[in-house]
Design a protein around this nucleic acid. Structure first.
Lengths: 221, 221
DNA sequence: ACTTACTCTACGGCTACCCGTAGGGTTTTG
DNA sequence: CAAAACCCTACGGGTAGCCGTAGAGTAAGT
């Protein structure tokens, strides 16, 4: 079992819950940071005194932190600590459930576990820890589907085409006509509708307006 | 009349038209740059040899320029040259017709003239030059309304509220309910509709989706 | 060649958006 | 005080988006 675990979590409610779960697992050394920068410093010091952490459990979004912080989110923290110690096990602990984002995080950060802050968050967290110590990967069951390649959602140039024209104010029928004009294969208004529906589901958008807002934030358009 | 005029314009079609107009006004020295950086260097050199320009006519958007350019658009160029020579007269010559943007440019840059690239662009440009030499301000008549304070469009916190909730996927009826919940005065769906209509007109958006895309680009939300 | 599976397309009912109109309330003007 | 102007609100008809369904076309497997 893990000997020394670092928690990075800004919400006290969440961090106390995580701490309790870890105590129940009889993990001897548990440390906690409210800010990413602080967590990173603790991590570096632990290496320096040759008592390194063997597990990091980090939140994703840290809100209301002072602007002076260098690291603003859990993914940045994970990236930094893994570059210092590639053998470190990491669990991301977040409310984020957008398939696109979850998949991106799991792949880009080479996480060992992704625990979704659902109603069963602590149960999932305990399960994750016991699996990860044997080098297995864990993801909360409600999100497991996003990693199955069959269901996984790839953003295509077709999607970008739709989103860009949507952002330019074209309506679905007009986008369909544009597709026909350019000789792009699926071109019916029905196909445009269907693909936009998938995009909305994938980005948790309830209508095209929100979809454009979200994908603009993602930098897709 | 002006003695030495600098044109900054990337489209040869446009710059040759401007040059012709200036020749018809019997302006002795006319110089031309295709890039903002080049224009700025010409401007500095002219000051150095004590033969400064007394008028700058600049396009707004310079497309397809090499990335190496420091200045990317006409407004940046105007800002730079005015900081070197505050007495310089400047005319912005652009296709930009969005009221919000036009007003912002005229005010922030302290322009002497704004000529809209309409069908009467050269006629307007000549008129602008003759007015400006007597320290008057000129704006193309089709855009004059955007500066009249009575008609001018101010972005209020109410607008930001609407745009943010629109970007979050709420529909008009739901936004109306949010307004009622927060006790904000105009709260009917009809009022929401009407204000959104004005916003769309102001930003040249044809539907809420495009409106969100545009205002996101503006950095409003 | 037939079946199966998948994709693209077409259609119809429902809802949200869009736009003009009109009525009620407050403020401004004469 | 009354008239006018203005703003907020309510309503109704037309249009675009939304969703399920169903049919046509294509590709792969038996």
């Amino acid at each position: 079992m893990f000997q020394k675990v670092l928690i990075a979590e800004d919400a006290d409610l969440a961090s106390s819950g995580v701490r309790k779960a870890l105590e129940e697992l009889e993990i001897p050394k548990i440390e906690y940071s409210q800010y990413c920068d602080e967590a990173f410093i603790k991590f570096k010091n632990a290496i320096r005194i040759e008592e390194p952490f063997d597990l990091l459990i980090s939140d994703l979004s840290f809100v209301g932190n002072p602007n002076t912080q260098r690291l603003h989110s859990g993914d940045e923290l994970v990236k930094e600590v893994k570059s210092l110690d590639p053998t470190l096990k990491t669990i991301l602990f977040s409310i984020e459930d957008r398939p696109f984002k979850v998949k991106q995080l799991c792949n880009d950060l080479a996480l060992n576990g992704y625990v979704w802050k659902s109603n069963d968050a602590l149960k999932d967290l305990k399960k994750a820890i016991s699996l990860i110590k044997d080098d297995n990967f864990f993801i909360s069951p409600q999100l497991a589907h996003v990693l199955r390649s069959k269901e996984s959602f790839e953003i295509t140039s077709f999607d970008i085409f739709l989103l860009q024209h949507l952002a330019e104010g074209l309506e679905q029928k007009e986008i369909s006509e544009e597709l026909k004009k350019k000789g792009i294969k699926p071109s019916s208004t029905s196909s445009v509708e269907k693909r936009l529906k998938l995009l909305k589901e994938n980005f948790n958008a309830s209508n095209p307006t929100q979809l454009v807002a979200i994908t603009k934030d993602f930098g897709l358009i």
